[in-house]
Design a protein around this nucleic acid. Structure first.
Length: 152
DNA sequence: GCCAACGTTGGC
DNA sequence: GCCAACGTTGGC
């Protein structure tokens, strides 16, 4: 089983939104970055654990966990001309963008802020610390352990 | 294929 | 709201 960190702006889609979905299961869509897309399409698998991260907000932080319950399939929004995620270069035969389904697993009692992560010598190798802008990124088992212990 | 211009992410 | 760090686009 692999571990991941998924970023979302809470104004757009927060962990509470995921927890409120029917069956507490939602679509992770709207990814329009190739590096993130490649992880999503090629590596993210059913059963993988996801750290849910709130970005572009007052206190950027890991706020909970989720589990992948459906592997990559074409993101329907790319085919919808009325969607902000419409991509005229995508076709049903050659989809460009993918999404997965996530099931809510936990909301942290104590969200783990980015500042705390940056201050922990054991977490310096996280993509989150080294490369600011990737919305889907791998996390090691050790990093997962440290953060989920701190959050719960 | 290079690279300048432009757009986006996301912390602060 | 600012701006650094990227990513993308498109002319040549």
């Amino acid at each position: 089983m692999n571990h991941w960190l998924f970023k979302s702006e809470p104004d757009e889609y927060s962990i509470d939104d995921l927890a409120s979905e029917p069956g507490q299961t939602g679509h992770w869509d709207g990814i329009r970055n190739y590096q993130a897309r490649n992880f999503l399409r090629d590596k993210v698998a059913v059963g993988d654990g996801v750290l849910f991260y709130h970005s572009a907000c007052k206190v950027p932080a890991v706020v909970g966990t989720a589990e992948v319950v459906k592997a990559a399939y074409p993101d329907p929004a790319q085919f919808d001309p009325d969607s902000p995620y419409f991509d005229p270069k995508a076709s049903a035969g050659a989809p460009r963008w993918f999404c997965v389904d996530l099931h809510w697993r936990s909301t942290f009692a104590h969200p783990v802020p980015l500042a705390q992560i940056k201050a922990d010598p054991r977490l310096q190798e996280m993509v989150l610390v080294k490369q600011g802008r990737l919305s889907i990124q791998p996390v090691t088992a050790e990093e997962w352990q440290i953060i989920s212990e701190r959050g719960s």
